[in-house]
Simulated scan of single mutants.
Amino acid sequence: MIKNSYRTAEKIKNDIEEHIIVTERQIERLQKVFKLLGDSDREIKCSAIESLIEENNRILEETQPRAIRDAAIISS
Rank of each mutant, 00 (worst) to 15 (best):
D70N: 14
I74A: 09
I68H: 05
K35D: 01
S51W: 07
D41N: 11
I21A: 03
I16H: 13
R69F: 12
N57Q: 05
E28W: 15
N4C: 09
S5W: 03
E10M: 15
L36H: 14
N57K: 05
D70S: 08
T63K: 03
T63Y: 02
D41V: 05
R66Y: 08
E28M: 15
A72G: 04
K45R: 10
Q31T: 11
K35E: 09
E61Y: 08
R29D: 08
N56V: 03
M1Q: 12
I27N: 14
T23S: 00
Q31K: 14
K35S: 04
N56A: 08
L36K: 12
R66G: 03
R29G: 05
T8W: 07
G38V: 00
Y6M: 09
K45D: 03
V22P: 03
A48M: 08
T63R: 04
E17S: 14
S51Q: 07
K11G: 04
V33Y: 05
L30S: 06
N4A: 12
Q64Y: 13
D41R: 02
K32L: 13
E17W: 12
A48N: 02
L36R: 07
L52R: 14
D15E: 10
I44L: 11
E61R: 11
V33Q: 05
L36P: 06
I44K: 15
A67E: 10
E43H: 15
R25C: 08
N56D: 10
I74K: 08
Q26P: 00
V33L: 02
R7D: 11
R7M: 09
Q26V: 09
I21Q: 07
A67Y: 09
K45C: 00
E18V: 07
S47N: 11
E10D: 14
G38W: 03
N56P: 04
Y6N: 00
I53R: 07
N14P: 03
E17A: 13
G38E: 06
L36C: 06
N57R: 01
E17R: 14
Q64V: 08
Y6R: 09
Y6P: 01
S47A: 08
I27V: 15
H19C: 07
K13W: 10
K11S: 12
A67S: 12
N14Q: 10
I59G: 05
A67K: 10
T23M: 06
Y6A: 05
L36E: 15
I44N: 13
E43Q: 15
I27A: 14
L60T: 00
I49Q: 01
E50S: 00
D39C: 08
S40Q: 13
S40Y: 11
N56L: 00
G38M: 01
S75A: 13
E28L: 15
T8S: 10
S40G: 10
S76E: 07
S75W: 14
Y6D: 04
I74W: 10
I44P: 07
R58H: 00
K11W: 12
